[in-house]
Design a protein around this nucleic acid. Structure first.
Lengths: 158, 158
DNA sequence: GGGTAAGTGAGAATGATTTGCATTTGCATA
DNA sequence: TATGCAAATGCAAATCATTCTCACTTACCC
């Protein structure tokens, strides 16, 4: 990557409305309360969440939502290439919404923060010795600025 | 990636002996038949294999090997950063040995072929807006040359 | 060769994820 | 606005990869 300047994309509130529509479309033609709730929760979050967490949040908006529906939604969003799944340091599995459809992220293993990287560092196009690339994933794992600051404090304190 | 020339690394038979030692060391101080079998199977394979497949192959070399031991080995190798885990197109989960410790691969979703990319396209070093990178993963998903050729034949035939 | 800690196999347990099915809901049409 | 139908849902049971338990075996150091 040499000295190329790369930024983490800021959380983009403006695009939320349009992206909500995209996500709902990925779930199917019907717009139901549980689907809207799940999609809104995932879009509002800037970090990976467990299915249980998603369920809890979604129930605030649509109380009858069930865990099965959360999984069904994740399955469809995943089929549409819009879901990032990762195992966090705690061992829990987190899911996050991937608005760009490009899978280049910085993932904090401490808090699950999921930040897209822009511009994309890698292109899909080139053939690798006859290998036909259909998609790619670039992930940087580590500790986000906030978690790093917290652990620094702990280090001083303890 | 612009027009940078990148190659898939050829399967490196010469390094197998040394790498076997590295892998066994990652499993612990004792050199047992099941461990040697599992490591040899993983190193000999150029593609992702399911735990069941690994067990089957390992039993050819060490008949008493059990699935639990395969998982135990995978766990330790993973802790050493030497395991690549991916879900294939079939839905099966495949594990492969990652000799370089660098996780830059081309993965064929059809047959599970796992080829390291050299040289690495990405460095761990740079800070992403305060994000401390500890590791990264770059994966190109697609269809390897052989599977592509096969599906072309099918296309002509059918 | 003997002692001991580590490694192992078998099977049970676990827990995330998926599925079946009766019921409910959204949406198009009358 | 009322109605019909297909899609969506909740619940609970089923599935299945993975992990754990424990009695037994093995590798390794002395």
């Amino acid at each position: 990557m040499s000295a190329r300047v790369v930024d983490l994309a800021p959380h983009d509130a403006e695009g939320l409305g349009a992206e909500t529509a995209v996500a709902l479309a990925a779930l199917g033609p019907a717009s139901t309360a549980p689907r809207r709730a799940i999609v809104e929760v995932m879009l509002a979050a800037s970090r990976l969440q467990t299915p249980e967490e998603l369920l809890h949040e979604a129930r605030i908006r649509a109380p009858a939502t069930s865990l099965a529906t959360v999984y069904r939604a994740l399955e469809r969003l995943d089929a549409a290439g819009r879901v990032k799944r990762a195992t966090l340091a705690s061992g829990a599995v987190g899911y996050g919404y991937c608005a760009t459809g490009h899978h280049e992220h910085a993932i904090c293993l401490r808090c699950g923060q999921l930040q897209p990287i822009r511009p994309c560092l890698v292109a899909d196009g080139p053939a690798l010795g006859g290998f036909r690339v259909t998609s790619h994933v670039l992930e940087f794992y580590g500790v986000c600025a906030r978690c790093a600051a917290e652990s620094d404090e702990e280090g001083v304190a303890g």
